[in-house]
Design a protein around this nucleic acid. Structure first.
Length: 973
RNA sequence: GAGCGAGUGGUGGAAUGGUAUACACGACGGACUUAAAAUCCGUUGCCGCAAGGCUUGUGGGUUCAAGUCCCACCUCGCUCACCA
């Protein structure tokens, strides 16, 4: 056949039209139940889960769907690898937005939620996500929240849920209390209005009981380090001591918490939080008015004002004194708002010598500052030589600069320093060194640090390790007359004298001893680090760490101190004064007290109401529904009232991942065998914003369930991955209010289709990186799909089986294909989707070039095999087009049920290797060699290269580095 | 202020200590077209006509060899923020 005839007979190539292909396959997948999974499989299980989304009233944008695209690609890859993949989706649908919408419009939260769910699901369906929709969950479905309520009673029975009257964050706008985690810089996390405090009787979960395990188990899970750090900081474990201080003339004593019991000899006053109960009893009549005025003023301040950290310290003396149990000394007791009632005991011993806040306070109110820890700087060395030494900082008061010596490469800028000679005072040494090294003579002593610094260093110029005790002094220049320097031989000409400003010092002086001297002498900083004890009686000379242990042991024996661990984390406030949540399943009976609703009476269903306004008295709208509130007591049958608070939405998301394992169970929240089969979640994917809330709560519930024998594991999410945010093309966050959102729907509509969108979501950057969306960028993904389509369609349509073809082109094609399989496989294992897709683009580009030498039509057999592999490699990201191509290649089963291809290492070996030739580390030439060329062959070839000869300039290499397959490096002098 | 992360072309980005700038966007040139779009083929870090030289935030160090490892600094992003 001639080519002219051919083109008139062969029908034109089938056009790639995502708009017809995508809905077609979505329907077929649903009909054939392609993504439904069951436990009865001999394949290894894998559970890939997205964070539980809240279906808001605004459609998802391309940033939201990045999360689902990543997890879907991963799920599809794992299925192809032969794993039994659970990949479910559901709705975390309780919450304020739906309720506030109801208040505004009268549309019930139920109705709004159902609409939003439908919209979100529709969006995900159009994206071709491979969820097992038979397991879809809705946390607002009574069949689901029945079990959330069941867990509440489960916690109640175990003493892990309790009720307490306490002051709590209160959002006036949303008319509800908030958990600590939900207050961000003094504002409500939902409406961003300032929050206040309100005293209410509230339900709590005792998460603090699990603080140690929540901390320790972080070590064993594969989570981003940043998230683990945030959780560690949030839990905020600090171990220290609780100590009792007697109060002069009172029976009551003062309890304090400190992590630095070693500094107790340096305590010079005590501070109570303004809310501290003892204040009323210990304040003397003379100070009463002042203290009351202070506390009143404090309470009148908003919490946001009180949380300002750069505020000047304020406080008032109470007139009372405590006795330092270690020294017997008298310590004035002050009240100040920098001490927080919620942490420790709400009272501290103040050690202004070693705590920056206490020092700031002491300076302001002229209280004594006593150092009891000598600073230690530098790294201790073996067998050090001991010397006494000085650091002298000389200020020129005229322009506020400081004299420094620049040693260049030998150590940068330092101040004047030197060893003390026998019989010399520190001040004499300083004056001598200043004159010798700089020639200045007329200076006056300003101040000396009260504690000598112990410094360890290696003196390179003398070749010895040294431990020195250093007296640090500040001098001022009285006039600028200089005499000649008198330098030691090894110092002459090696340094220059420079006058530096404070800002320059911060940049240029890096020596720990000199910088620390400057910070303490000039900037008034205190030493908060470790060191050697002084002024502390029998503990003098011990390291601060040793003293901490010794004192704790001694003081514990003496009966006035005890070891104590404190957590920053508080118990989880679970009650909310809102309608749209799971009712707390509790009934208050006058006779029986607080009674849990029995399991067989669950769920406590939300009544339908028409008025969603909060009741205005700090109770939820449910309080207004009399026939729902008034019920007989489950225990005595007498008159009783239901609890009207509902649960925080985070209760639902603390266990939903277990329900996916067994979503239809009406006897239990889940069957243990099913839960133990599917869980823990293998890969959990979502944004970093849930670092401390959901992820901490879910870990807590999992541990409670494990302790209760409901499951056989203690961590819910083995691996966690955070996807980065997609910003709008303008670089700002996508937001309805900026009008810069881009939705997946509009991109699919513009004929790009879901596959191009999915591909671009993954190609745009590494998945964890924040990146602005590029409107034109998606063209590249779309073009690539069209090119892949043409290639595979050409192969599918071809029928030839040429015997006499281009063998070297075929080898090349197979080599490139197998390299691509290897690269794509490795990249998917590490979720490097962007480079996996780049490798596929390279392969298609290469195939386009090779089909010139090895035409497709007569070589159909070769190209069809290549096309099949390419189609499978592409399937995880572009599930629709690959399904269509797979069918056109003659398959009747789904490409998503195919097997992931393996690569053959033998086929990857290239027939020519390129070796770079370096001279002194610079690439000067490349040589082409056979893969089996020996080292000496290659070196000989390299030395013969014209560019190499020219650059060697007749020199003979003194050394030759050979890295097989990579480089040859000739070292010449 | 503290902790964590990141600085590579015009842009998004690539690179087990071994040929920096893969892949893509954009731009430019060409083919096809009556024309445009689409498509296909090229060019594209900087300086230079070229030979060649220079280049991964800045400065230093380790190494035969540094974007990569070490030290200091600068800038940006995120998180926490008086937690004793």
């Amino acid at each position: 056949m001639t080519s002219g005839l051919c083109s008139s007979i062969i029908p034109p190539m089938k056009r790639y039209d995502p708009k017809t292909i995508e809905p077609k396959w979505q329907q077929i997948w649903a009909e054939t139940k392609l993504y439904e999974v069951h436990e009865d499989s001999d394949k290894p299980k894998s559970y890939v889960l997205d964070f539980f989304p809240y279906p808001s009233g605004v459609a998802m944008h391309v940033g939201h769907v990045r999360n689902y695209t990543i997890s879907d690609a991963l799920s599809r890859y794992r299925r192809l690898k032969g794993e039994n993949v659970l990949h479910p989706m559901g709705w975390d649908a309780f919450g304020l937005p739906a309720e506030n919408f109801a208040i505004k419009t009268g549309i019930s939260p139920r109705q709004a939620t159902d609409q939003n769910k439908a919209m979100f699901k529709q969006q995900l369906m159009k994206m071709g996500m491979s969820y097992d929709w038979t397991r879809e969950l809705d946390s607002t479905d009574p069949k689901f929240y029945r079990w959330t309520q069941w867990f509440f009673t489960f916690l109640l029975e175990r003493g892990l849920a309790y009720q307490k009257e306490s002051e709590q964050w209160w959002c006036e706008t949303d008319q509800t209390v908030l958990a600590n985690e939900q207050v961000e810089a003094g504002r409500c996390w939902r409406c961003h209005n300032l929050v206040t405090k309100k005293t209410l009787k509230q339900w709590f979960f005792k998460i603090t009981d699990y603080a140690d395990r929540l901390l320790a188990d972080l070590d064993d899970i594969d989570w981003p380090e940043g998230i683990k750090t945030m959780q560690r900081n949030w839990i905020g474990r600090s171990s220290g001591a609780r100590a009792t201080f007697a109060i002069e003339g009172h029976k009551d004593s003062l309890q304090i918490f400190t992590t630095r019991i070693d500094t107790i000899y340096g305590a010079t006053f005590m501070v109570l939080a303004p809310e501290h109960q003892l204040l009323a009893t210990i304040t003397t009549p003379a100070q009463k008015a002042a203290v009351e005025a202070y506390t009143q003023a404090t309470f009148a301040k908003s919490d946001i004002e009180r949380m300002e950290t750069d505020r000047e310290k304020t406080g008032v003396f109470t007139g009372a004194y405590a006795i330092n149990p270690a020294t017997g000394g008298q310590l004035p007791i002050w009240v100040a708002d920098y001490v927080l009632i919620g942490y420790g005991t709400g009272a501290i011993m103040a050690v202004p010598g070693h705590d920056a806040r206490d020092q700031e306070f002491a300076r302001k109110f002229d209280l004594p500052i006593i150092p009891v820890v000598r600073p230690v700087t530098g790294k201790p060395q073996e067998d050090p030589e001991y010397r006494q030494s000085i650091v002298a900082i000389l200020r020129n008061p005229k322009d506020n600069t400081y004299l420094s010596i620049n040693w260049g490469n030998q150590g940068g800028n330092i101040f004047i320093g030197g060893g003390r000679e026998t019989g010399e005072t520190a001040e004499q040494t300083a004056l001598r060194e200043i004159t010798e090294e700089t020639g200045y003579q007329h200076v006056k002593h300003v101040t000396t640090l009260p504690a000598e610094i112990e410094h360890h260093y290696y003196a390179h110029s003398k070749g010895v390790a040294r431990r020195i005790d250093v007296v640090s002094m500040l001098f001022e220049l009285t006039d600028t007359i200089q005499v000649a320097q008198a330098l030691e031989a090894d110092e002459a000409g090696k340094f220059t004298v420079e006058w530096l400003t404070e800002a320059e010092i911060a940049q240029k002086v890096t020596d720990e001893l000199h910088l620390s001297s400057f910070q303490q002498l000039v900037q008034g900083q205190v030493w908060t680090g470790e060191g050697i004890m002084m002024g502390s009686g029998q503990y003098d000379g011990q390291s601060s760490a040793e003293a901490r242990e010794a004192m704790l042991a001694d003081f514990t024996k003496a009966g006035w101190a005890t070891e104590q661990v404190n957590y920053r984390m508080r118990d989880w406030l679970i009650s909310r004064q809102r309608y749209w949540g799971a009712p707390i399943p509790v009934i208050h009976c006058e006779k029986c007290g607080t009674v849990a609703v029995p399991a067989d009476q669950l769920p406590v269903e939300l009544p339908e109401i028409s008025d969603y306004q909060p009741s205005g008295d700090g109770r939820s709208p449910l309080a207004k529904v009399a026939d729902w509130v008034n019920v007989p007591c489950p225990q005595c049958g007498g008159p009783a009232q239901r609890e009207t608070d509902t649960m925080d939405g985070f209760a639902c998301s603390s266990w939903y991942f277990l329900r996916f394992a067994d979503p239809y169970n009406d006897q239990a929240p889940f069957d243990r065998a099913k839960a133990d089969y599917w869980l823990p979640v293998d890969t959990y994917i979502g944004g970093a914003e849930h670092a401390v809330m959901h992820l901490l709560y879910a870990r807590f519930w999992t541990k409670v369930m494990a302790d209760g024998g409901l499951i056989g594991f203690t961590e819910p999410f083995t691996a966690l991955r955070n996807q980065g945010m997609i910003l709008a093309p303008d670089g700002r966050k996508m937001s309805k209010s900026y009008g810069n959102t881009i939705t997946p729907d509009e991109i699919i509509e513009q004929n790009y289709g879901a596959d191009a969108l999915r591909l671009y979501e993954l190609f745009i950057a590494p998945y964890e990186q924040t990146v602005p969306w590029s409107v034109q960028g998606i063209d590249g993904s779309s073009r690539f799909l069209h090119r892949a389509w043409s290639l595979v369609q050409d192969a599918a349509a071809a029928t030839g089986n040429a015997a006499d073809h281009n063998g070297s082109a075929e080898t090349r094609l197979v080599t490139v294909l197998h390299k691509t399989i290897r690269k794509v496989t490795a990249d998917l294992e590490s979720m490097a989707f962007n480079t996996a897709i780049a490798a596929l683009m390279e392969f298609v580009n290469e195939a386009y070039k090779l089909k010139v030498e090895l035409p497709i039509a007569p070589n159909a057999a070769i190209w069809q095999g290549v096309a099949e592999t390419l189609t499978i490699l592409l399937a995880p990201y572009a599930p629709h087009i690959t399904e269509e191509l797979w069918a056109d290649l003659g398959h009747s089963s789904s490409v998503h049920s195919a097997s992931w291809p393996a690569w053959d290492a033998a086929l990857i070996i290239e027939d020519v290797m390129t070796i770079a030739v370096q001279i002194n580390g610079k690439v000067r030439a490349t040589v082409a060699v056979a893969p089996d060329a020996t080292e000496s062959d290659i070196i000989e070839l390299a030395l013969a290269d014209a560019a190499v000869v020219r650059n060697l300039e007749g020199r003979t290499p003194t050394k030759t580095i050979f890295v097989p397959g990579k480089i040859v490096n000739f070292v010449v002098s």
